[in-house]
């Protein structure tokens, strides 16, 4: 059934989607352990989903065939991880929403991804820099999640960790090659770094949900990942002859559902089919 105008205007489209499936259960109570876990899982799953979508935008447009395929592979890795994180989030929520419902039937304010990953692709250098700045956080994050007190979380982290070990190897290598490459490639990588740096800090800033998840041993305290991050960033940027920006100003809000102007455009592209033809199948 196609959504009517009133459906489209409903602020809580998520609840509407759930109720239309006959799932009458009340939303999770904010501050409850289940709600915290659901939020933590959507932060992970939304981040991999949005980045996966962004990277997939390169499909057919990368500078060379080999890089095109490499980017598509990475996008698919990230979407695969999304299925696991959001699949578990849906189970934890218990209101009948699966990974697809969470990915395609929520609005911007219900997404909890880091702002970094919704940044537009820009040129190839900007895409690679964004990837590197993300991977340098993602790898130690998954490493820490392998020790989660929640066995389901640990299991997903273990599987994703193998993929991400390759992502960081690749993105770091390309950042070094292009940073320490020609004058043109160096300048592009430096301006990409300068433009994106302000979006890296958010991942290390804890809110109440993060703190409770850390106390429960389910997810690491965000700030605990900073030393590993700095070590990777400093080593790679030095080898790439790139200068780390001095400002530690951090844009934030993505984890709480406050997004940049780019998010709506991205969701329009990503969700239009399931919005126009709910439950459409191949």
């Amino acid at each position: 059934m196609a959504p009517s105008l009133s459906d489209v205007m409903t602020p809580d489209a998520a609840a509407l989607a759930a109720s239309s499936k006959g799932e009458g259960r009340a939303p999770l109570e904010a501050g409850s352990p289940e709600h915290d876990l659901f939020t933590g899982l959507t932060r992970l799953g939304d981040t991999t989903l949005i980045l996966g979508h962004r990277v997939s935008e390169w499909c057919g447009h990368a500078p060379v065939l080999e890089e095109d395929i490499a980017l598509a592979n990475m996008a698919l890795d990230l979407i695969g991880q999304t299925q696991l994180w959001l699949g578990l989030a849906g189970e934890v929520e218990g209101r009948g929403r699966d990974a697809d419902a969470l990915a395609f039937r929520r609005d911007g304010w219900d997404f909890h991804n880091l702002l970094l990953v919704e940044r537009p692709n820009g040129d190839f250098g900007t895409t690679l820099m964004r990837q590197f700045l993300f991977d340098a956080w993602h790898a130690p994050m998954l490493k820490a999640l392998e020790g989660s007190s929640d066995a389901r979380v640990a299991e997903i982290a273990q599987k994703a960790g193998k993929e991400v070990a390759y992502h960081i190897e690749r993105s770091a290598d390309l950042v070094i090659r292009l940073g320490d490459g020609t004058e043109e490639s160096h300048n592009r990588m430096q301006s990409a770094l300068d433009a994106l740096w302000g979006y890296t800090g958010e991942a290390f800033i804890a809110d109440a949900v993060d703190t409770r998840l850390a106390e429960a041993g389910i997810m690491p305290a965000p700030e605990s990942l900073r030393p590993a991050y700095d070590e990777t960033i400093n080593a790679v940027l030095a080898e790439a002859t790139l200068k780390r920006p001095e400002s530690n100003f951090a844009h934030k809000g993505g984890k709480q559902g406050r997004h940049s102007e780019h998010m709506g455009h991205l969701l329009t592209q990503m969700q239009w089919l399931q919005r126009a033809y709910p439950d459409a199948r191949w």
Partner: peptide, 10 residues
Amino acid sequence: ELAIRHARDV
């Protein structure tokens, strides 16, 4: 080195 990486991806 990149040939190996590309081969892995392709």
